[in-house]
C-alpha cells in the first residue's frame, strides 16, 4: 500500500501509522457522557468509501485524512487532517 502524502509525495506504507475513522468530531467541553461515549467508541463498519487518520511518522509527522475504499483498498484522496476532529473548523 502506498499513500501520496501532500507534503512528501508518494510513500510506502511502513512510513505511516493508522489510527482509525476520521469522521467523529470531538464534542464540546460541556458535552454529555453519552455524546463523548459515542465519540470515543461508536464507529461505522464501512464496506466502501471511508475516511481515516494516518500519521506520517516516518516523514513529515503530519496527520493525514485518507479517503479509502475498504473493499478495493483504493485511495481516492489524501489531505492534511488539520482540524478534522475539531468541533469548529480550523480558521
Amino acid at each position: 500500500m502506498r499513500i501520496v502524502c501532500p507534503f512528501c509525495g508518494e510513500r510506502e506504507l511502513g512510513e505511516f501509522t493508522y489510527l482509525g475513522d476520521a469522521k467523529p468530531v470531538r464534542p464540546a467541553a460541556g458535552a454529555s457522557e453519552d455524546e463523548v461515549f459515542d465519540y470515543v467508541y461508536l464507529r461505522d463498519n464501512v464496506a466502501g468509501e471511508t475516511s481515516e487518520y494516518w500519521y506520517h511518522g516516518g516523514g513529515c509527522r503530519s496527520w493525514l485524512k485518507v479517503a479509502r475504499n475498504t473493499l478495493t483498498h483504493e485511495i481516492s484522496s489524501v489531505e492534511p487532517a488539520a482540524g478534522a476532529g475539531a468541533r469548529q473548523p480550523a480558521k
Binding site: A82, G85, A86, K91
Partner: peptide
C-alpha cells in the same frame, strides 16, 4: 500530542 495539536485543537 501531534494528533491533539493538528487534528483536535488547530486554533
Amino acid at each position: 500530542l501531534e494528533f491533539c495539536r493538528q487534528v483536535l485543537f488547530p486554533e
